[in-house]
Design a protein around this nucleic acid. Structure first.
Length: 800
DNA sequence: CTAGGGTTAG
């Protein structure tokens, strides 16, 4: 009896001391020691110690240890043990394993409790992030598991448990199911700081900054925000540039003693920099007692974002005196080189990166691709891309963007197909990078594919995506689809409206563009300087001279937007296309900014329609004096002298182009027939069906002559005899394309032809005749607009 | 005995 009591007493003592030892273990070595003691005492299979050991191993990032303890108690019969193993696995990122254990637990018909769900929910959420991209089926599975969990939570009546609800909230945020979040949050009976933080962070991370700020303001009435809340809301302030609220939060921090927190101060630096208030950033920085690398990087990045590059460099050298730059610092420096397009600076940074051994970093590698592209060195971007061992989605998006930046669309499309072959899932930025390629090439088929991909990704309601789609469809010859996308967009910004106005402008729908502009103003969206470029261009493409000029004044007076060179160019285009050349020239000479080559070039193009050689010659003189590098203008100038028969001047210009190492963009046209793209260059003789195409053009020439057509030889721009000039005109690439299209499609089928340069006046006339003779709709897109030829007329009303 | 939110520089 006595011995028994003593035994029980010592057993209790052992229990307590082992439990204490286990709790206070601070290293895995200590843990192993205590574990051995527990085993020798024969207590390792007890519910209490096994559960505690499982959790303890998880704490030291040793899920294998947790598992081996769990296996020794199998079949486990206590909820505590199951909870522990599920939590241990989730804690270590082994989400799918955690869910497998959860399924087993469900099969055992053990009663789950409020401790089970938070871990399970976390596992669901974690898996969605990591594996859904690669394994869509797995993602579905998790979605189902998430629903089961939610259902069980409701059935068990533990919906009111704050921790469980918070877990559900966080899971749905990770699935980006915002409506569910809203519902759960509104139904929560009890909310604590964590609940508020979950929704505020969640909205901020989903990019819904206004929503996040609104919730924060609601929260402060009842709860004390902590550092997490403050961090999230400051991020939101920075993103939308809400300086006022940012200052309010800063005051709150000062009042509540968060001011000396380094992390919080770093966020403040970032917020002020994003709001453009570098002085405030600097003040916060100077007050930080313990500046860490992030503090320095944040301030330097602030200076770079606000284009104060010299300040940034000064700070950098100061920083280097007591801290070593890390990969983030180098990424920022690369971004600076890119912004400045200074390849020498970029290469120096690249050398430093190699020296410091940061060249193996994925983020740095991606930044290098971007830097080289922005410096116009696509070759170096490609080299960097090929040299990279690991590539993530950003790598692919960067190289595609690089190709787009250098206008190498074929390379760009090659990259997108390589990306598909290598199994990389495209994302939203991929869509934003590829859509402009389709726009430029008028590749409608690829554009449509991307559109369906956008639906599959579920990002069709994203505003920039919608904007890019509007542009793509309008440039691919489908105004109808553009309008459809526009109508379906729930949220619209100034870019959306501008895309619509430009679309109308390209199709010569000036009146509709004007109406769209008014509608935009009526919905309370203020036009920016680009919207004005779009509307004035739309006017000039439709011959709405008075309206265009009115908008130019409207911009200055009502919106206080100072006209830039491109606005002046629009007005010059507007006047000269309508034959008001004297007014256009006068306008250039009276403008407050120094006219550059683009203005004279615009005037010169405008001269083509009316053939005013005097103005053309004066404009040419200005262009030559300005010594621009744009070949397009020199082609125009040389055309003027060719038309005047001043061949010595033509030769002089050609020679100076050669000396500068510049080459004229060759004119080319292309069209899509049955999913295949056919390209034609000016005067091409080596393509399929060359003979047939030529014969058809001859037949058409005969028929046109009967209708009264006479070739306008001022557009044949070579120093050759008259009849040879006629031949050269016939060789213009758009004619080859049209003839080829006529031969290879059924009668009556509308044709769509793209051209990289502007259509010449003679081709414009010829196309009108052809549309009448063959009774077909011919849609021609040139450098900046569409011409729909139908029964002898053109939609542009000859304002080409 | 076990549970929930994670913020800053790119």
């Amino acid at each position: 009896m006595k011995a028994g009591k003593l035994g029980q007493r010592s057993q209790e003592l052992l229990y307590v001391s082992l439990s204490k030892a286990l709790s206070s273990a601070t290293s895995s070595r200590q843990l192993h020691k205590v574990h051995s003691l527990i085993i020798t005492s024969g207590l390792d299979q007890s519910v209490f110690f096994s559960g505690k050991l499982i959790s303890k191993y998880a704490q030291f990032k040793n899920p294998v240890g947790s598992l081996s303890v769990f296996r020794r108690v199998s079949p486990a019969n206590s909820v505590y043990q199951w909870n522990s193993i599920i939590r241990a696995l989730t804690h270590n990122g082994l989400f799918s394993d955690a869910l497998k254990f959860y399924s087993q637990m469900r099969n055992l018909e053990l009663k789950q409790d409020t401790y089970t769900f938070p871990s399970v929910i976390n596992a669901c959420a974690g898996l969605s992030d990591l594996e859904m991209g690669v394994l869509p089926a797995c993602g579905d599975l998790v979605a189902v598991e998430g629903q089961i969990v939610h259902g069980l939570v409701e059935k068990m009546g533990i919906k009111k448990d704050v921790i469980v609800s918070n877990g559900l909230l966080s899971m749905y945020f990770k699935f980006n199911r915002l409506t569910d979040c809203k519902l759960i949050f509104s139904e929560m009976v009890v909310r604590d700081t964590v609940s508020w933080n979950t929704v505020i962070c969640g909205y901020s991370q989903s990019g819904l900054f206004e929503e996040s700020i609104k919730l924060f303001l609601e929260m402060v009435d009842n709860f004390e925000p902590d550092l997490l809340t403050i961090g999230s809301v400051l991020r939101a302030c920075g993103q939308i540039g809400d300086l006022e609220l940012g200052k309010y939060v800063h005051d709150y921090m000062i009042r509540n003693g968060y001011e000396c927190d380094t992390t919080a101060s770093n966020i403040l630096i970032n917020m002020y920099a994003k709001c453009g208030n570098l002085l405030a950033s600097r003040e916060v920085f100077d007050r930080i007692r313990f500046k860490d690398l992030v503090s320095w990087n944040s301030l330097i990045s602030g200076y770079i974002q606000n284009e104060c590059f010299e300040e940034a460099m000064k700070l950098l050298s100061k920083m280097k005196a007591d801290l070593r730059a890390d990969s983030v610092t180098y990424v920022m420096l690369l971004s600076m080189s890119g912004q400045l397009a200074r390849i020498h600076h970029g290469k120096e940074v690249h050398c430093d990166i190699i020296k410091m051994g940061f060249d193996s970093s994925l983020v740095v590698g991606n930044a290098l691709i971007d830097m080289y592209a922005k410096c116009g060195k696509l070759e170096d971007s490609l080299k960097q891309f090929e040299n990279m061992r690991d590539r993530d989605i950003v790598t692919w998006n960067s190289i595609i963007t690089a190709c787009v930046h250098s206008e190498d669309y074929n390379q760009g499309f090659r990259m997108t197909s390589r990306m598909r072959i290598e199994g990389m899932m495209p994302d939203l930025p991929t869509m934003l990078a590829t859509l402009p390629m389709c726009s430029f090439l008028a590749a409608k088929r690829q554009g449509k594919e991307i559109h369906s991909c956008i639906f599959k990704l579920g990002i069709q309601s994203d505003v920039p995506v919608g904007n890019a789609l509007i542009e793509m469809y309008s440039k691919c010859g489908s105004l109808k689809h553009s309008l459809l996308v526009f109508e379906q967009m729930k949220m619209k910004d100034v870019v959306t409206w501008t895309a619509l106005i430009s679309a109308y402008g390209m199709y010569g729908e000036g009146k509709k563009a004007l109406r769209a502009f008014e509608e935009m103003e009526a919905t309370g969206i203020a036009p920016d300087h680009i919207a004005f470029v779009a509307i004035i261009f739309a006017c000039s493409h439709s011959g709405l001279v008075d309206e265009g000029q009115a908008y130019f004044d409207h911009m200055k007076k009502k919106y206080k937007i100072e006209p830039r060179i491109e606005h002046y160019a629009c007005v010059v285009d507007l006047l000269s296309r309508s034959g008001l050349l004297a007014e256009a020239e006068e306008f250039i000479l009276s403008m407050p900014l120094k006219p550059d080559a683009s203005l004279w070039g615009t005037l010169l193009s405008g001269c083509r329609a009316s053939g005013n050689v005097k103005v053309a010659e004066r404009a040419s003189q200005h262009i030559i004096e300005l010594n621009s590098d744009n070949t397009g203008y020199y082609v125009l100038v040389s055309n003027v002298y060719a038309a005047l028969g001043k061949w010595d001047k033509v030769r002089m210009i050609r020679k100076s182009l050669r000396n500068k190492g510049l080459k004229k963009d060759p004119g080319c046209s292309w069209m899509e027939i049955r999913n295949k793209v056919y390209v034609f260059g000016t005067g091409d003789r080596f393509f399929e069906q060359y003979e047939e195409v030529n014969r058809l053009l001859e037949i058409l020439a005969g028929l046109m002559a009967k209708e009264g057509y006479v070739a306008d030889l001022q557009f044949a721009l070579h120093d050759v005899e008259e009849d040879e000039k006629r031949d050269l005109l016939c060789g213009h690439s758009e004619r080859l394309a049209i003839a080829f299209g006529l031969l290879n499609t059924k009668p009556g089928t509308p044709l769509q032809v793209m051209k990289n340069l502007r259509v010449c006046g003679d081709c414009h006339t010829v196309t009108k005749y052809i549309s009448k003779i063959v009774q077909r709709e011919l849609l021609v897109r040139d450098a900046n607009r569409f011409h729909l030829f139908k029964d002898g007329t053109c939609s542009c009303g000859d304002y080409w």
